[in-house]
């Protein structure tokens, strides 16, 4: 019994210590003065790695999710004879919720895990140590560009996801199932508000991008530098990011749309 209480206490201490380390780590990354000349090419390279290379999975997922929304929406709405509202249903679902959330989950799986594994392997092969010994701070040289790249790429990916999803919904709803095109777009235009819906969705994706990138780079930097350590850090990245995204999504949705 006492052992269990002790192990619970140890677990609690570990969690608090890890939170403290990640906070200090974030401070160290953000404290550095950005150097536009030398830092910019590094940032562009990372935006390519985490953003452009994630495009394929984001576009394909967006297309299919939009198409499924079109199908399901049509089936449900036609029961009430209101299938012309399918446009606004697809757009609101995507822009407010599915765009930011699903993109963040895909981002954690595709880019976050890659970031963790890359940084973890750099640690295991002493590349980070050798950088330190050359008088170069790896937090600024390696970590900062990756963190900022995630932060910048994620909202753009979420917007692309929503756009492609709406197009996919239109393909199914209008082209296939024969909803009148005018009402599809017209309903969407009249019901989707730029500030309340689109911008709130973008704010969500900015938060998710930051959290996912932070978790990914921290897990890589903090991992035990062995193959088992890197594998567990990569798993943790995906699990923690997904949970953080879903939890934060609830909180943000309650704050943004919960006028009860």
């Amino acid at each position: 019994m006492l052992d269990r209480i002790a192990s619970l206490g140890r677990l609690g201490l570990d969690i608090v210590a890890s939170l403290g380390r990640s906070g200090r780590f974030l401070g160290g990354v953000l404290a550095g003065v950005p150097r536009p000349v030398s830092g910019f090419p590094l940032l562009v390279k990372q935006i390519y790695a985490v953003g452009v290379l994630s495009l394929a999975i984001v576009v394909v997922s967006g297309l299919f999710i939009g198409m499924v929304l079109g199908l399901q929406g049509y089936t449900i709405l036609s029961d009430y004879g209101s299938e012309s509202a399918i446009g606004q249903m697809i757009a609101l679902t995507l822009v407010r919720e599915l765009g930011p959330v699903v993109t963040a989950l895909l981002f954690a799986g595709r880019a976050g895990s890659a970031l963790t594994a890359e940084i973890g392997l750099m640690k295991a092969t002493e590349q980070l140590s050798s950088m330190e010994m050359m008088g170069v701070d790896p937090l600024r040289r390696v970590i900062a560009p990756r963190l900022w790249a995630g932060f910048i790429a994620m909202p753009i990916l979420a917007v692309i996801f929503s756009v492609v999803g709406i197009w996919g919904g239109m393909l199914v709803g209008v082209e296939w199932l024969g909803v009148f095109e005018g009402s599809f777009w017209g309903n969407m235009q009249s019901s989707v508000d730029f500030l309340d819906d689109v911008m709130n969705g973008v704010i969500k994706s900015v938060v998710f991008g930051f959290v996912c990138a932070w978790i990914a780079v921290f897990q890589g930097y903090d991992c035990v530098p062995t193959s088992a350590g890197i594998s567990s850090a990569t798993t943790k990245t995906v699990v923690y990011s997904s949970l953080a995204v879903l939890g934060l999504d609830f909180v943000l949705t309650a704050v943004m749309f919960g006028d009860f």
Binding site: T125, E126, Q127, S129, S130, M133, M134, G135, V136, R141
Partner: peptide
């Protein structure tokens, strides 16, 4: 100070030339 690590610790995304040029470019 220079340090030669046991594993070499070369930056795997840079060529041999760029690895050697790295400290020069930074400092």
């Amino acid at each position: 100070m220079g340090m030669l690590f046991q594993s070499g610790a070369l930056f795997t995304d840079l060529s041999v030339f760029e690895n050697v040029a790295f400290p020069l470019r930074v400092h």
